[in-house]
Design a protein around this nucleic acid. Sequence first.
DNA 1: GTCTATAGAGGGATAGAC
DNA 2: GTCTATCCCTCTATAGAC
Lengths: 188, 188
Amino acid sequence: MTQRKSQILTTAARLFKERGYSAVTMRDLAAALDMKAASLYNHISGKQEILTILILEVAHEFTNGMKQVESDDSTAFVKAQNLIALHIKIALSLTDSLAVLNNDWMHLEGVSYEEYIRLRKNYEADFKQIILEGIDKGEFKNMSVETILFNLLSTLRSIYLWIPKKSPSEIETLKVELPDLLLLGLKK
Amino acid sequence: MTQRKSQILTTAARLFKERGYSAVTMRDLAAALDMKAASLYNHISGKQEILTILILEVAHEFTNGMKQVESDDSTAFVKAQNLIALHIKIALSLTDSLAVLNNDWMHLEGVSYEEYIRLRKNYEADFKQIILEGIDKGEFKNMSVETILFNLLSTLRSIYLWIPKKSPSEIETLKVELPDLLLLGLKK
DNA sequence: GTCTATAGAGGGATAGAC
DNA sequence: GTCTATCCCTCTATAGAC
């Protein structure tokens, strides 16, 4: 990956986050980089390639993080804590790309689309399994696993919206309080 | 509002929800209604009008619901319960428009944009006030109000994503469990 | 109220000079 | 590696017949 290409990708991520993939033109992107649209094509094959790289990078981060969490031989409660930390970490390091994943995944095409859907399906199934384990072993309240998963993923998926508006000290507060807020209500 | 116009609006809401405002063309919308794009303009002034009507209707529903909740002389805990019920009710009755509000508000233009921003700002400030009241009176844990607000709004804003996939009985479960899940962890 | 036709602007992408 | 010029297509919206 050349320097120019990653410059294009980070700028694209920011613009896609602000206005959405479909509303950003190659001319917009080029202008934000002080160049002409035609020049972009020396670095990337097209608009779709940008979208695919941005989204699949984040999706693989989640998948790898989940593998890490699962390989650790700990309680469901600790695994859930680690997943919360994973979401915060990715939201901090890949804020804009994560926004693109959340909002524009449906504009992926062909095999990239299939790949994304597969990764997301597996991630959610793994997450559900961890919650089920927690309920089975009496670590969590005996509530509908669907409701719990919905609540956790909703909040975790929104972190990227919250982070850019906050100071480093507020983010530290979130890191400490979010696991408590999300999991202590669940604890048996 | 003629029957034809509301037919156009509900179809547009569905398409905008699926692909986003910018990716849906007037030809797409017309085709979904078995008509030609030019005919749409006998009922609406343009694409922007559709977006404005869909989003501001939902925004006013939230604003009116908040007024109701505030006018009730009850504890912060009950007010929070009522706000959760409000979000579930709107997510059920205006699922597609709510999705459009969440995803495409930034494509509003002119006074409609200003109006939306104003309504959202006031709604969030009112919500925050209720949480602060709960902390002050010792009903809620003494946590960062920002963290609490973030968690509540994240989950409440995502309900529309969850509802279309679920059966009526699962939705009943959500109505019962969500206030417990969101608020009992907060309770002092 | 719906149609065909089309204006006028702007989209992604390519060719080829430098 | 960047540019100008341009292709070809699609976009929103309008004009005017029926």
